[in-house]
Simulated scan of single mutants.
Amino acid sequence: MSAAPKHDVFQAVADPTRRQLLSLLAESDELTVSALSAPFAMSRTAVSKHLRVLSEAGLVRERKAGRETRYRLEAEPLQELRRWLDYYERFWTNRLSVLRQLVESDDADEDVLEPRGPRAVD
């Protein structure tokens, strides 16, 4: 039985630094902490902490190669994020479709299109 991850995919990708690390790893097979740290104005220790969060979420796999630790992207857990985003993409597409039909309708009542609430007095 495997233990539940300390961080989930949503927590892991919530940070812009971690999203950028994922982008860097997506462009390469494997990268070292030194290579991953180069684009950032932060210490390798700080980058390592971000990598630990990504690893705990299952998004990064690490492998020892001599004295170096190499990191590789594990994209499968991103499917959970994709499913969540797909739902909201369908939701907003449907809402915008209804709005378009309302706006483009020839028999649309103009009162429906006017904003409700108090009007500004000039």
Rank of each mutant, 00 (worst) to 15 (best):
R90Q: 03
V47I: 14
E30C: 00
L73H: 09
L99C: 10
L73P: 00
T45L: 11
L25Q: 07
T45C: 09
R18W: 05
E80S: 12
Y71S: 13
S23P: 00
K49I: 00
H50S: 04
E62I: 09
F91W: 05
R18T: 00
P16N: 02
L54N: 04
N94R: 15
R100D: 04
E110P: 01
F91H: 08
L21G: 03
P39C: 02
L24K: 15
L99E: 08
R95H: 15
D109W: 05
R82W: 14
L99P: 06
T69Q: 15
K49S: 11
E74N: 11
R100E: 09
E89L: 10
E27G: 01
S55Y: 12
L78P: 00
L51I: 01
Y87T: 09
A57Y: 02
L21E: 10
V47F: 07
T32F: 08
A41M: 15
R52L: 14
R18C: 08
R72I: 07
F40S: 11
E56N: 11
S105R: 11
R67G: 04
F91D: 13
W84D: 13
L54T: 02
D106M: 09
A35G: 01
G58S: 00
R18P: 02
V98Q: 13
R100G: 00
T45R: 15
S28C: 10
P77C: 02
L21H: 01
A38Q: 14
L21N: 04
E110G: 03
S34W: 00
L73E: 02
L24G: 11
R70G: 04
A46Q: 08
K64F: 09
P39N: 03
E76S: 00
A108R: 12
L25I: 12
L51F: 01
G58N: 07
D109P: 04
S55R: 15
R52G: 05
D107Q: 13
E110Y: 07
L31I: 07
